[in-house]
Computed example of a mutant assay.
Amino acid sequence: MNWESLTSSNQLEALMEKSKDQPVVLFKHSTRCSISSMALNRLERSWNEEEMKEVTPVYLDLIQYRDLSGAIAHQLGVEHQSPQIIVVHEGKAIYDTSHMGISYQELHKVVNNLTMA
């Protein structure tokens, strides 16, 4: 799985623009949380590059970039959680879940519905 690391507000704006062409899957990860590490590991083990070739996967270390995490919550109108998956399409959050709700199968369904439309 090839994560794009989110490290700046300029990059966040570029990703919002990119989401107009293809879905962006944003994973907000707390490097201090075992549940977050488990959710990340499960997602990475299940990820299928062929199924998700139309998606940009983005990783945010929210401990190191807490301000970006707040900017995402504000800009997308999604309550901050950790760990958290947010699917962004056309500059808007169309799906989000956290903790044990993070599932590759569910994420694939959401993305597949977008790319098949």
Rank of each mutant, 00 (worst) to 15 (best):
M116D: 12
T7I: 14
Y104K: 08
L6Y: 03
N112S: 15
T97W: 03
W47G: 06
N2A: 13
S8G: 03
Y95H: 15
K92C: 09
L6C: 03
P23A: 11
A71C: 00
R66Y: 02
L60W: 04
T7A: 09
Y59M: 13
N112M: 09
Q84W: 09
Q11V: 06
G77N: 09
E49G: 04
N113Y: 07
M16I: 10
A71S: 14
V88W: 01
M16A: 04
L40I: 03
M1K: 10
Q105F: 14
T31N: 12
N10C: 02
P83C: 08
H29Y: 07
G77V: 07
D21I: 00
W3S: 08
T31C: 07
V24P: 02
L15W: 06
E50Q: 14
D67L: 14
L60T: 07
H99M: 10
N10S: 14
E90H: 00
E49P: 00
L43C: 01
P83K: 11
V58D: 10
K18S: 07
V110N: 09
E4I: 14
V78K: 07
M16R: 05
M100G: 03
S5H: 06
V78G: 06
V87D: 06
E51Y: 02
E79Y: 09
M1R: 06
M116W: 04
N10P: 00
S69I: 02
H108Q: 15
S9W: 01
M1F: 08
D67Y: 12
C33N: 08
D96N: 15
A39W: 02
E13M: 04
I102E: 02
V55H: 07
E49W: 01
P57D: 01
K18G: 00
S69Q: 01
R66W: 03
A39N: 04
G77P: 01
T56F: 02
A73E: 15
N2R: 10
Y59H: 13
N10W: 01
G70S: 14
K18P: 00
S5L: 05
H29G: 11
T7H: 03
Q81R: 08
L107Q: 09
S69P: 02
N48I: 11
S19P: 00
L62Q: 09
I35S: 03
L107P: 05
L6R: 05
S34D: 10
M52V: 07
R42A: 08
S5R: 10
G101D: 08
Q75W: 02
E90D: 07
K20C: 01
V88L: 06
S69W: 02
I102W: 05
T97K: 02
K53G: 08
V25T: 12
I35N: 00
Y59A: 08
S98A: 15
M16N: 09
V55G: 04
Q64K: 14
S46H: 11
V78L: 06
L114E: 03
M38F: 05
I63S: 05
N112Q: 15
Y65C: 07
D21K: 02
L62G: 00
G70L: 13
L6D: 03
N112L: 12
R66I: 04
H74N: 15
I63R: 09
M1S: 14
G101A: 12
R66V: 06
E54S: 15
H80G: 06
M1H: 07
M116T: 15
I94Q: 09
E79L: 14
S46P: 00
A93H: 11
S98G: 15
S19A: 00
V110T: 13
